[in-house]
């Protein structure tokens, strides 16, 4: 499928909401047909606004957006026929049954007759909702509602499926089940999936390519392994028994820094973080240096870089801190 036109192609998107909140600032994304693409970023980074523009709900102040070969700004109707949308908020009608929700969704897409009912029943069975098909949606558990949401998005066999924070609010068990379902979808009929998430683990696990979004634009993009590989090296974390004072901390950092196999040494309280091309091999040397300096080591861990490390590198802040900042900024407002 590498020769096919991209399923999603957007560039230069900017959007400022009334009240001056700059949601997008030169956002761009290209998703190859038949792949799963993840937009990863904290709440308020601009992922949802991007999805709203690509799904024809919102209009950007500037920029271009093509979805499934159609211009989302000029021909939103054509785009709507080609896409399935699973938004952050459920959107299912709580007093209608699961089956009624699916039938209406299909009808709005012009499906009729047995094609309609057969598709609804097929999806109910596939998402393990057949037994609850005739129950009102308000009686569903969170996991069941989310599965119905995905089924609603798939009802008319879209070419591109948008999943906006598909597992937010789910308990761990339901989340794992949803992940399996999304992985299964990815193999389907050349379906293209654009997924937004603020869970690093989710993007790592589901997406073939990831764009890291911060403050309304993409800061880096690649496959999860590429992104981690760019950091070139393992993370070495040492925990000391006692926190060194400021002078000692500086001495420790300098002593470790002189040692060629490790770099990016940071001492923060009792914790020391550093990078090494070969983490395990660097550990004995690191320990020797620390002992020389008179520091007592409580534990040492070596880890392959995580997407959190990638995020820190490109966005210049820790993922959790960005989440917090976004939460404070967007409290009460649309993010």
């Amino acid at each position: 499928m590498t020769t096919a036109a991209p399923a999603v192609e957007a560039g230069g998107l900017t959007k400022t909401y009334a009240g001056g909140v700059k949601a997008l600032d030169g956002m761009g994304v290209t998703v190859a047909a038949g792949t799963v693409f993840g937009l990863l970023g904290p709440n308020g980074a601009g992922k949802s606004t991007t999805v709203k523009i690509l799904t024809t709900l919102a209009r950007p102040d500037a920029g271009t957006a093509r979805v499934a070969g159609h211009d989302a700004l000029r021909h939103p109707d054509r785009v709507r026929r080609a896409i399935g949308v699973v938004a952050q908020k459920s959107g299912a009608d709580p007093v209608a049954t699961g089956r009624e929700n699916l039938l209406l969704q299909g009808r709005l897409h012009g499906m009729r007759g047995t094609a309609l009912t057969a598709r609804a029943d097929e999806l109910l069975a596939r998402f393990d909702l057949a037994a609850a098909a005739k129950r009102q949606v308000r009686t569903y558990s969170g996991g069941m509602q989310r599965r119905l949401d995905v089924a609603l998005g798939l009802m008319h066999r879209p070419q591109v499926l948008f999943l906006d924070e598909p597992t937010t609010g789910l308990d761990p068990e339901a989340r794992t089940a949803m992940w399996q379902e999304i992985s299964r979808l990815a193999g389907d009929e050349g379906l293209t999936i654009l997924l937004t998430t603020h869970y690093l683990e989710e993007a790592d696990r589901l997406a073939e390519r990831i764009a890291i979004v911060d403050r309304g634009r993409v800061v880096t993009e690649g496959s999860p392994d590429e992104l981690k590989g760019e950091l070139r090296g393992d993370a070495v974390h040492v925990e000391l028994r006692d926190a060194p004072d400021e002078v000692d901390a500086r001495l420790l950092a300098t002593a470790l820094g002189e040692f060629a196999a490790v770099r990016e040494v940071a001492v923060d309280g009792r914790r020391i973080a550093a990078r090494a091309d070969d983490g395990p091999a660097a550990v004995p040397h690191v320990l020797a240096v620390l002992e020389q300096q008179g520091a007592t080591v409580a534990s040492v861990t070596v880890a392959r870089p995580s997407l959190d490390d990638v995020y820190l590198r490109y966005a210049g802040r820790r993922f959790a801190d960005a989440e917090e900042a976004a939460g404070a900024k967007s409290a009460g407002g649309a993010a």
Partner: peptide
């Protein structure tokens, strides 16, 4: 919003 993203 769900309805608005369909061709209705």
């Amino acid at each position: 919003n769900r309805f608005l993203t369909t061709p209705v």
